[in-house]
């Protein structure tokens, strides 16, 4: 009989890899009887799906209110124009 701690490890491992048939059956039995572990399994798999979907769509998972600061924009603009100038000089 699995403890909840062991079950939580298998729940996580199942998202990343295959379980052996022994582990698979043990986990299924435990989940049938344990509501808290069912809740845990449901939560981490929702998180898993959210992360995968976001990654595939190249979404950042950060609120839009987070922005590049004015100072760093300034710095990057300078670095870009320096590089552009350098390229132009080389082409001449």
């Amino acid at each position: 009989m699995l403890t909840c701690k062991e079950a939580s490890y298998l729940i996580s491992k199942k998202l990343d890899d295959h379980l052996t048939w022994r582990d698979r059956i043990a986990l299924r039995l435990h989940l049938m009887m344990c509501k808290l572990c069912r809740g845990y399994a449901s939560d981490v798999s929702k998180l898993h799906v959210l992360m995968r979907d976001s990654g595939e769509e190249a979404r950042a998972l950060l609120p839009d209110s987070i922005k590049l600061s004015e100072q760093s924009r300034e710095r990057i603009t300078q670095a870009l124009s320096k590089q552009t100038k350098h390229q132009l000089d080389n082409n001449q």
């Binding site: 190249a58 950042a60 950060l62 839009d64 987070i66 922005k67 590049l68 924009r73 990057i76 603009t77 870009l80 124009s81 590089q83 552009t84």
Partner: peptide, 17 residues
Amino acid sequence: PEQWLEKYGDILYRYGL
């Protein structure tokens, strides 16, 4: 490049962060 920064600066920043 200046337009890149303007248009995609925040998107790239959030992606990286």
